[in-house]
Design a protein around this nucleic acid. Structure first.
Length: 376
DNA sequence: TACTCGTGGTT
DNA sequence: TAACCAAGAGT
């Protein structure tokens, strides 16, 4: 352990007493896994789902965190992970919960198919595996919501399997280390292969988490802190001086603006809500009635999709619009409000909910914006 | 392969 | 400010 503590400071090549300025001074290829782990032992992040060094990880906590972290920042996940662990401390507990409860707890975190698959996975592990996660990559891969990355991550981190998960961080680190010119996603197989060479003979999970921490804190997308990197001058992209340009990837096109209308109906202290279709955009989540969302949507056409309510003929249009940006398109919603008389029946498929308890509803943030705008 | 699928923070 | 990015999966 004592020797390891020095590895973060750029180990020198053993066979070359004479080192020129341009010669690589980073660890030799074969020494990289050890240098990486030594760096990790000194600089690993403290995270809610990560036990203290040397303490085995709880597969349930690893799985839950990995699902939440898909395309989601560590900061955003933190409170959700704590909430879920407190309410459902085991996969069996989560498997016994209702999908509705899971969606309510997940509301605001985005990518709601993850929550549906999370629940389905908990049920499957409880029913088909006796509440114990499969301990192989192949077994994990068969579970809902568990793809190639997550299966490898759980196998390595929770079960010590010799496999290297490749996420966005690792793609960036590895593509820079080897200056991989091929564009993503075509370069994935090559990057997977190169990433696997960074696995130490033991501590596979730590190797993976080390690369992720390195990508998140040192080998960042913009202005990487190369001087602090354990790979040092062994990094080809750094030697070329264009580390920031990796990984190569085709620019993505932005979607066209879509427009629509949302209808906020109050009845005393209550509000009219309904549920969205089980799958697709915001699948299974709660919403206020609203129109189609279409590019070049005409305001009058959208307005005409207001719910039919007995005794309601007048709608007030709120000034301004609610804007929201989805991954593949931006959205602008015009908001109409009305006050329904006491006793007004909710249309088929809709229900009245107390405004005071809206926090407990499975409302995606878009809908929270709409309601806040309407009641403002 | 190329879309779909949320949200918030950075640059 | 527009673009990019974050421990990707499903179709």
């Amino acid at each position: 352990m004592r020797a390891m503590s020095l590895a973060g400071a750029a180990p020198r090549r053993k066979q070359s007493p004479v080192i020129t300025a341009s010669e690589p001074t980073g660890p030799d290829r074969g020494e990289r896994p050890a240098a990486l782990l030594a760096w990790y032992d000194r600089h690993r992040r403290i995270l809610p789902w990560r036990p203290p060094a040397g303490v085995p990880a709880d597969p349930y906590a690893v799985w839950l965190s990995e699902i939440m972290l898909q395309q989601t920042t560590v900061r955003a996940v933190g409170p959700y992970f704590e909430k879920f662990m407190a309410r459902w401390p085991s996969v069996k507990a989560l498997g016994a919960a209702s999908l509705d409860d899971v969606l309510r707890m997940w509301a605001g975190l985005g990518y709601y198919s993850r929550a549906r698959n999370l629940h389905a996975c908990a049920v499957a592990v409880t029913r088909n595996h006796g509440g114990a996660f499969p301990d192989t990559e192949q077994g994990l891969r068969a579970l809902p919501g568990v793809g190639p990355y997550t299966a490898a991550a759980i196998a390595a981190i929770a079960f010590g399997r010799q496999t290297m998960p490749v996420d966005g961080n690792i793609e960036r680190v590895v593509s820079r280390l080897h200056a991989v010119e091929e564009e993503l996603p075509k370069a994935k197989p090559r990057i997977q292969e190169l990433a696997a060479t960074l696995l130490g003979p033991e501590r596979a999970g730590d190797s993976a988490q080390a690369l992720m921490d390195l990508g998140a804190t040192i080998c960042t997308p913009k202005k990487p802190a190369c001087a602090l990197c354990p790979f040092n001058d062994g990094c080809v992209a750094r030697l070329r001086g264009d580390a920031e340009t990796f990984p190569r990837k085709a620019p993505k096109k932005t979607g066209a603006l879509r427009r629509g209308a949302a209808f906020v109906v109050t009845r005393g202290d209550q509000l009219l809500l309904r549920s969205r279709a089980a799958k697709g955009l915001l699948g299974g989540m709660t919403e206020v009635p609203n129109s189609d969302w279409l590019a070049d949507q005409d305001d009058a056409v959208a307005r005409a999709q207001a719910p039919a309510l007995k005794g309601v003929t007048r709608w007030q249009r709120k000034a301004g619009v609610v804007t929201h940006v989805f991954t593949h398109f931006p959205l602008e919603l015009v908001v109409y409000t009305t006050q329904a008389p006491a006793g007004t029946r909710a249309p088929a498929g809709m229900r009245w909910a107390e405004v005071a308890t809206l926090a407990d509803e499975a409302l995606p943030n878009l809908m929270r914006k709409v309601i806040a705008h309407a009641l403002d």
